[in-house]
Simulated assay, not measured.
Amino acid sequence: MTDTPQKPGAYARKKKPFVKPGPRRPGLPPEGPVLLYGLHTVEAAFANRARKRIKLYATENAVNRLQERGVKIDVPVEMKMPRELDRMVTKDAVHQGMILEADPLPAYGSFDLKGARLVLALDQVTDPHNVGAILRSAVALAVDAVVTTERHAPEEGPVLAKSASGALDMIRHVRVKNMSRFIDEMKDQGFTCIALDSDGPATLEDTDFGDRTVLVLGSEGKGVRQGVREACGTLARLDMPGEIRSLNVSNAAVLSLYVARKKLGL
């Protein structure tokens, strides 16, 4: 009796074909932990009750500096040399000797804006440095929330957090799927929605504000999209008397928010 030859791998488990996972929808909170670095960013993350912290990687000097500033370090600490921290972040990232591993912030929606009086909406502003600077200005000017679109907007991450210099953990950052629909929802709640546009019929100072206002700024170059402008209904402009007639969006945000607070009596 002869053995029947077997085909190679006859009893081996068949491998399933590799299927590349589909891309995660841009603009949503990152999957898994994020790394936050820099003194003000890490300090604000420790002060934010909504931020779930996991682990701190830091030099001894950085830990001492945090403690001197009254930060209660409530997570495990792994001591690192500066060069080790350098390898954990992108090139030229200024970590100041500390990197905090943490979960992304909870997802906020329009339902979290009850009681708000001044809301800033950014229509497809994509540069994380600009959005971070705007978040910082919004905190300084006591804005109730900053709204961005899920797509064509920076997700929460180290660059945005560092640019915001702690502001990411100090203000509600709302992400919406459709900015025009969001504007309609806010108008139904009694908000006046004003889109900044260079062709606005009146200056922002001469525009009527309601008791509750959403101020909408668009990306540099394209500005606020037509559908969003139409949803707002009210357009206003910032007049520049000098030879340069336009501002960087982060600078335009500061100026328009300052005017808005004056108009609202805040």
Rank of each mutant, 00 (worst) to 15 (best):
H95G: 01
S246M: 05
E185V: 08
L85A: 13
R136V: 01
P29H: 08
G97P: 03
P154R: 04
D103T: 04
T126H: 07
N48M: 02
V42R: 00
V89Y: 05
N130K: 12
R65T: 11
E150K: 07
E60F: 03
D103F: 14
G218N: 01
G97L: 10
D197C: 14
T148I: 06
A121G: 05
T90D: 10
V224G: 02
S165D: 09
M81W: 06
L28Y: 04
F209Y: 11
Q189M: 10
F46K: 06
A45V: 01
L122R: 11
Y57A: 00
V174W: 07
K52E: 15
L141E: 07
M170I: 00
P201G: 04
K177L: 12
Q189D: 15
D123T: 10
N64G: 14
Y108T: 06
L105Q: 10
F209A: 13
L217V: 10
P201D: 11
D184W: 03
G32H: 14
D169K: 03
T4N: 04
L56Q: 03
T2D: 09
L247M: 15
N248T: 08
N130S: 15
A10E: 12
K263F: 06
D169E: 14
D239I: 08
P26G: 05
P106F: 12
R117K: 15
K14T: 14
K177W: 12
G27Q: 01
L160N: 07
K55E: 15
D112W: 00
P30K: 12
H129P: 00
K55M: 10
G233W: 02
I134K: 05
V176W: 05
M240H: 11
N178W: 02
R175F: 01
L196G: 02
T41E: 11
V94W: 06
E230R: 00
K80E: 11
E185M: 05
L204E: 13
K72H: 13
E68Y: 02
R151G: 12
A44V: 07
P104V: 10
I244Q: 09
R83M: 10
L238T: 04
R69S: 07
G200W: 09
